[in-house]
Amino acid sequence: MNILKELANRDRVFDFLAPADSPVDVRHGPILYMENVTVSFDGFKAIDNLNLTIDDGELRCIIGPNGAGKTTMMDIITGKTRPDAGQVWFGTRHDLLTMKEPEIAHLGIGRKFQKPTVFEALTVFENLELAMSVDKRVIPTLTARLNGEMRDRIDEVLVMTGLVAQRHQLAGILSHGQKQWLEIGMLIMQRPRLLLVDEPVAGMTEQEMERTAELLTGLAGKQSVVVVEHDMGFVRSIARKVTVLHQGSVLAEGSMDQVQSDPRVIEVYLGESEEAA
């Protein structure tokens, strides 16, 4: 296996820098705070006066029709996109708008994209090993030896993700669902305080969706988890609080029953269905 080639692949996007103990301060407020955030692309407001707060240890589901601004919101949180106006704070001390992507990852914000991105030429165990919160320069990575605590951490994540039996399998031969769990596991290895998960059950079987629901709900409390998803059945199975985005701002917020019965939400989703038809 050519590990150097894998590490040099620019299509591989991983945040290897998060420390075990994030310095985020949540004693006097939420873990994530977005106020009056606006961003435009060529005159189109992708995010329009967005206000959002996520509490420490919370599991929040973000839903909304296509073009609602869900991906742009995550891009702003992770430093990929800079807004035109507004504030974004991680805890009470860290202004994310003054920080670069690696610095934000180092604080403890992890992001999982819709398409699973794993090192397919490496085993499940090796993928988790590479994702561990240690020195990730190439030479130390290739020469490092795992201690007992590190192996215990990997074993713990293997159990959490349901991949114990696949620990020595190449990631490339895993099922779609297993690759999703492996990537979530790689993020867990970094001990993030905030985990952003984009459409985790797209393309999954019903059984895989149930396992993913167990995994994400099991993380809540240990980490803050924000899940962006289109599958309403899955959202209902995990939702504690749901935020509905529309045209770049919050349209409704509350329990799944509350947002589903909101006339504004019904109008937005029915309108999308009629346009698609």
Rank of each mutant, 00 (worst) to 15 (best):
M1D: 06
I3V: 12
I3T: 06
E6S: 08
N9P: 05
D11S: 05
R12V: 11
F14P: 03
L17Q: 00
A18T: 12
A18E: 14
P19S: 05
A20N: 10
D21V: 06
P23W: 08
D25I: 06
R27M: 11
R27P: 03
Y33P: 04
M34Y: 08
M34T: 02
E35R: 15
T38I: 05
V39S: 10
V39D: 09
S40M: 03
S40K: 02
F41R: 08
D42C: 01
G43T: 07
F44H: 12
F44I: 13
N49A: 09
N49R: 13
N49C: 06
T53G: 04
D55A: 01
D56M: 11
E58F: 12
R60K: 10
I62N: 00
I62M: 00
I62D: 02
I63Y: 06
G64M: 06
A68V: 11
A68I: 10
G69Q: 13
K70R: 01
T72Q: 04
M73W: 03
D75F: 00
I76Y: 11
K80R: 14
K80H: 07
R82E: 13
R82K: 06
Q87W: 05
V88C: 13
W89F: 14
F90I: 03
G91W: 05
H94L: 04
L97F: 07
T98Y: 06
P102H: 10
E103S: 08
E103W: 03
I104M: 13
I109Q: 13
G110R: 01
R111D: 09
F113E: 00
F113R: 01
Q114T: 00
Q114F: 00
K115G: 10
K115T: 15
T117H: 02
N127D: 12
L128M: 03
P140Q: 09
A144E: 08
R145Q: 02
R145C: 02
G148M: 05
M150C: 03
R153S: 09
D155I: 08
E156I: 03
E156P: 02
V157Y: 11
M160A: 07
L163V: 09
A165M: 07
Q166S: 14
R167M: 03
Q169V: 00
L170G: 06
A171G: 15
I173K: 02
L174V: 01
G177W: 08
K179F: 03
M189I: 02
P192W: 15
R193W: 11
R193H: 13
L194Y: 14
L195M: 15
V197H: 06
E199K: 11
E199Q: 09
P200H: 01
A202L: 01
G203M: 05
T205D: 01
E206D: 14
T212Q: 10
A213L: 10
E214P: 02
T217H: 08
T217W: 10
K222G: 13
K222E: 15
V226F: 05
G233F: 05
G233M: 01
R236L: 07
R236T: 14
S237R: 03
R240A: 07
T243E: 02
T243C: 02
E253S: 15
M256Y: 15
D257K: 03
Q258S: 09
V259T: 09
V259G: 12
Q260L: 09
P263W: 13
R264M: 15
I266E: 15
Y269L: 12
G271Q: 15
A276N: 14
A277W: 08
